[in-house]
Nucleic acid binder design. Structure first.
Lengths: 340, 340
DNA sequence: CGCGTTTCCGCAAGCGCTTCCACAAGATGC
DNA sequence: GCATCTTGTGGAAGCGCTTGCGGAAACGCG
């Protein structure tokens, strides 16, 4: 294997100068810099990042902790973060927690402590006291996405506001009989997200003077499958059916649409449906939604961290609100005349 | 930061012995081993993997190169691989190539050569000569999934066989008017996968004495959206419509089902649809499919690589065929009497 | 032209581990 | 009884870089 020594020899420079030339730090004359570059290129030399990390303390590697890689939000964040990191020359180490508690435990008590990452992005994770402590014990910048993360900077969206905005969209079309699909309570304990969106919904309804019917608030697990089942129950009773459904996520909105079709309901004629997210399938499904730009959130997290790393300053815990946008497609419309 | 030196001091042992005790290699008396462990635990000590890698040449890190993290197959492979790696104490570095050619270039010419990974898993990537060369220049074990990878071990499924199996399922139900949704030619150049599945389809049709109608073979880009558009065209002409569609992937089958619904076609009464994959949505959509266990393939790739790493032997290029299974759900049925 | 600055560069000391080697005991063989 | 293994341990030499330090060369200024 060719090392920096070989490059130095070939370039007729010292190892130190080659190191500085290639990393761009320190004063190196343009001539030497060019010679170092040329020699490295000719030899196909690429720095050993282990050695580099060991010597410099910088790993050029960011850890990304996610609860799952399958669900839309997480894969979108990964996509956004990975592109931004690649661009910056950083590696991305993925820690996919999954369902297994043992895995979760080892990620926090082992993997993250290996001093292999310069920074950590944690996505939608509600951490225990102990986990939080381990995280901070790394003494590395941390950014949380999609959930609170005490002591760390977070990127979030205005969940309550967008729920109001979504509900107002339906109200504005003339709907008054609106159901809401929220997340299970278990999720609420973690991220408070279902509850926040739900209260946004209720506020908007109250402001409009529309009663919120408790039996029209059903919960699911944020997946298409789960919402499909929940929506089937909601839509089962023909005479007493909402004219619109606001789901707390696009995946649940899609499940609702699938369920509606099973009952022969036409979207949006018989039922308007909207969600929150900006899911890729939204386009095919004609889903009206509020786009939260998950990719952008991932990229922003990376920019935040890299800024902190290169400035060497400790990341001040701060909340950044990420913008969202209403995307109107064909799943929402004025309620059919005659529908109550 | 506490280092191995502190542990050694606390345990009353030499650094060398502590290293051996913690790694489990070399001869260490049970007493010393226990003392080392205890001291490490008390200090909350976790090895610096940089230093460890530098000294030992082993990184405890595997690189996973994927074209995208969004599409089902890739995220399933990631999920499977990540769990298996976590289990083994290995880190997973994710290289998401994406659409950007510059990213692709830097992954192969830069990132992978940083000597940070012990092995590489490449998923569904058709590599150029140069990329292949860079990959092999790492001198690390490589496993390919979902596509050929010259000079490396690969894990694959019997594409032709499962296409025949799928087609035979439809034929067995009594369908003769079967359409096929294949992948675009561009994909064929890469993975040969669409072509292989397509010929499996054609073989089965020929064997059954059913004519293959060229206008009933349409292509899409393997996504739900793409197949949705393609299927709309396919299904547009009411009088002359297939009674069944076999899509080369579940995502495309789902797109087909969505399109069929737009035309008021009932699944499976008016149209049987099946795919290949084992997509999570298959359940909700009632999709008959051939499950290829992508997670299992990811896990198998990891096991193969770890075996090679720990045995220190070069991985003999070998093809492993991963088993698949027919999953019959509600999207396929005997064709309606009266349909041609 | 001399002197203080600045720029560029090489030396060498690490970064925090692993592992080769040597060595001291205790175990074993004849 | 002595020679020979085996086992457990510590010393020390790296692994392949980065970077502080000091010297040499180039520069600016009166």
């Amino acid at each position: 294997m060719t090392g920096i020594k070989d490059v130095a020899e070939r370039a007729g420079l010292s190892v130190a100068t080659v190191s500085r030339a290639l990393s761009g730090k320190g004063n190196v004359s343009p001539t030497s810099r060019e010679r170092a570059r040329a020699a490295a290129a000719e030899l196909g030399f690429v720095l050993s990042y282990h050695a580099s990390s060991l010597a410099s303390g910088r790993t050029h590697n960011v850890g990304l902790v996610v609860p799952s890689v399958h669900r839309w939000f997480f894969s979108a964040v990964i996509e956004g973060a990975s592109a931004a990191l690649l661009e910056a020359g950083y590696d991305l180490t993925l820690y996919n927690i999954g369902e297994n508690p043992a895995h979760r435990h080892s990620v926090f008590n082992d993997f993250l402590l290996r001093k292999r990452v310069d920074a950590v992005i944690a996505v939608s994770l509600e951490l225990s006291e102990a986990e939080l402590q381990q995280l901070h014990a790394m003494h590395r910048p941390i950014v949380g996405i999609g959930g609170p993360l005490p002591g760390a900077s977070t990127i979030r969206i205005d969940d309550s506001g967008i729920a109001r905005k979504a509900t107002n969209h339906l109200l504005g079309l003339g709907h008054t009989q609106i159901a809401h699909i929220t997340g299970h309570e278990a999720y609420d304990q973690d991220f408070h997200l279902p509850g926040t969106r739900r209260s946004g919904f209720e506020e908007a309804m109250n402001d409009a003077g529309c009663p919120v019917r408790p039996e029209w608030i059903v919960s699911a697990d944020f997946t298409i499958e789960g919402a499909y089942a929940a929506a089937r129950q909601l839509l089962a009773s023909a005479p007493d059916r909402p004219t619109a459904v606001f789901a707390a996520s696009d995946e649940m909105a899609i499940g609702t649409i699938l369920a509606a079709r099973d009952f022969g309901l036409r979207i949006p004629d018989d039922l308007s449906v909207m969600g929150i997210d900006g899911h890729d399938l939204g386009n095919v499904m004609g889903l009206t939604t509020i786009d939260q730009d998950a990719k952008g959130q991932g990229a922003l997290a990376v920019r935040t961290l890299l800024g902190a790393i290169t400035n060497g300053l400790v990341l001040e815990p701060a909340d950044t609100e990420h913008p969202t946008s209403l995307v109107v497609r064909s799943s929402t419309a004025v309620p059919k005349a005659g529908a109550s």
